[in-house]
Amino acid sequence: MSRLDTLIFGCGALGQEVAMQLAERGIEVYLYSDDLDEVGALLAKGMQAAVVDFKNDDKLRDIGIGRWVKRIFCLFSDEPSNLFLTLSARALDADLKIIAVCESAASGQRLMAAGATKVIDPYEISGHRVHERIARPYLVEMLESSLFGKHIDIAEIEIPDHSRLNGAMLNDLGLGSLFNLIIIGVVDLELGRELIFANSGISHRLDGGDILVVIGPEAEISRLKRAVAENSLEPASDSGDP
């Protein structure tokens, strides 16, 4: 088996769904479970799955945790298993990204305490979507068909150290007039993982390693990515937006 840096634990409906979505984005994964039947069903479907006893740290190390694996998904259907796996994996690798599923706010807190990087509550999100659908139907339709649909993408673009944008003020870039894009904000990893919103009123000085978060049509995004990579962007001299 080749070394993949993404593993999914739990071969239920959730695990399959995530594996499929990742495959669509070109990320290959292995699925692991301690349930023989589940693994068998996945193998029959042609997915890469294997049985592993996740309660045994040596077995976890054998499949790459603490060595080459960069992120794991804990998607067992029961919370204790997810919690146990999160704890074991965190103990093996302090930098591992652990994404876990939770079923309530309380279990989310437990998973975070156990060392999960990100806890996602599918029910919370679904409930929120249903509510949004009721409260703001047009908006949801727009977001569904644009953000999740084919037209518009959200992307992050890292600014290289040698870029000409290095040192420019975010508000002065005037990217909005050069590209059909909306800049949502920027993340300065030196300041933390918080997203600084472009319209917050505080202009941010860009430097190398900052990550721009933009929304727009796919073609425009790749144009911007190309421009940043080729370093052909010039910070506008006049202050861009009125």
Binding site: V18, R25, I99, E124, I125, R129, E156, G185, V213
Partner: peptide, 27 residues
């Protein structure tokens, strides 16, 4: 719920920073 989860988890695997922004907006 599962598809939404898959979508969000996959997005997180690909672009964690952008994801945080969208996740905040969506939830």
């Amino acid at each position: 719920p599962y598809e939404v989860f898959g979508l969000i988890a996959a997005e997180y695997a690909g672009q964690p920073v952008a994801f945080e922004a969208v996740y905040g907006l969506l939830t």
